[in-house]
């Protein structure tokens, strides 16, 4: 076993004593983020897991309040100390966006306060070339603009380089005897050089592109199954669902999808998103028009999960390349 692997395993073993840990784990041939009981189960390849961290950060269903008689009780409870271990850079970018979107949401913030984020990147064996995010300005271009407590980078000679991104992260490293680490000071979600120019250009192209043949093609092949939105780390839409029982009522927040049939349905029956073409256009608008407009950040972190999971092979990278060509 490589020395770096021994260090990683030792850290995970120690942290497991104090925290619930979620980490990428091989489940058959699929890499999935799930709760781990055994530190040896963690996959350190740095590959993209099939599911996203939102399963921990935004639960599929959560209680908003209960009403018993005329007493309304909110349910913004605490979450046990949980450590997200091995969050890759693209997923940290998604987390940055979620932190901004839910900045005024007491349920999200309560949960987030008890989450420790340990990022991880491996340029070994192949992700360095594939993801092209590990430039020599890694610290300034990437780590300064994403939220994390600790970041561990496996560097070229197979050594580990440690970063702390918060006071909590610094303590987490020091208490485990790691003295040699770099403090990263968060410099805002958007780089000092301003929002990504390619992203801003795409925003204008996409929002005026409904007549482009791409959307008719997708209308023909997309099944509107919603699997893409389920795995997407930046899909966070939700419904409120009330239990219809006036004596003991409650409201839950339930994760939704713009591909679901009732997503835009009004009480009178009118549906804005009545066709698959409108639904898939709406989904792309969210990623490449609305989020950039609102936050100056891309609403897609290029993780590729949606393309991998799509049953009819819709490839977001190819589609974006087509839209980019619009003059």
């Amino acid at each position: 076993m490589l020395k770096s692997d021994v260090i990683l395993q030792r850290l995970a073993e120690t942290w497991l004593k104090d925290y619930f840990i979620y980490a990428p784990t091989k489940s058959g041939s699929v890499l999935r983020i799930q709760e781990i009981q055994d530190f040896r189960a963690i996959d350190w390849s740095g590959s993209m897991p099939a599911n996203s961290w939102k399963e921990i950060i935004i639960p599929a269903r959560e209680r908003i309040f209960d009403i018993t008689g005329d007493k309304l009780q909110t349910t913004a409870g605490q979450q046990p100390l949980t450590l997200c271990l091995g969050v890759n850079v693209l997923d940290l970018k998604a987390l940055m966006l979620l932190d901004l979107v839910f900045s005024n949401d007491v349920y999200y913030q309560n949960r987030r306060a008890n989450l420790l984020i340990v990022g991880y990147s491996s340029d070994w064996p192949h992700d360095y070339q594939k993801l092209k995010v590990f430039s020599h300005n890694f610290e300034a271009d990437v780590l300064e603009h994403v939220p994390f407590d600790v970041f561990i980078a496996r560097i070229k000679n197979n050594k580990l380089k440690f970063y702390s991104g918060s006071e909590k992260g610094r303590k987490l490293l020091e208490t485990n005897g790691i003295k040699d680490f770099t403090n990263i000071k968060f410099a805002g979600a958007v780089a000092e050089s301003g929002p990504d120019k390619r992203m801003m250009g795409l925003q204008t192209k996409l929002e005026n592109s409904l007549k482009h043949s791409l959307w008719s093609t997708l209308d023909d092949i997309c099944l509107a199954c919603g699997k893409c939105s389920n795995v997407c780390p930046t899909c966070f839409c939700f419904d409120f669902v009330d239990k219809i029982d006036p004596n003991d009522a409650r409201r839950d927040r339930v994760r939704s999808s713009c591909f679901y049939n009732d997503f835009s349905k009004l009480a009178g029956g009118f549906k804005e998103l009545a066709t698959i073409k409108k639904k898939i256009f709406f989904w792309y608008e969210h990623k490449f028009v609305r989020i950039p407009h609102q936050y100056n950040l891309p609403g897609c972190v290029s993780c590729g999960r949606c393309s991998k999971v799509c049953p009819v092979g819709i490839d977001i990278f190819k589609n974006i390349a087509k839209l980019s060509k619009i003059k």
Binding site: V101, F236, C237, F238, D239, F240, S264, F282, R290
Partner: peptide, 21 residues
């Protein structure tokens, strides 16, 4: 405009049109 909506804060996405909520 009238749209389906839940949150009222531009988060839940149901009422989105183009770049607006």
């Amino acid at each position: 405009l009238e749209r389906k909506m839940y949150c009222g804060h531009g988060v839940c996405q149901h009422c989105a049109i183009g770049r607006y909520y």
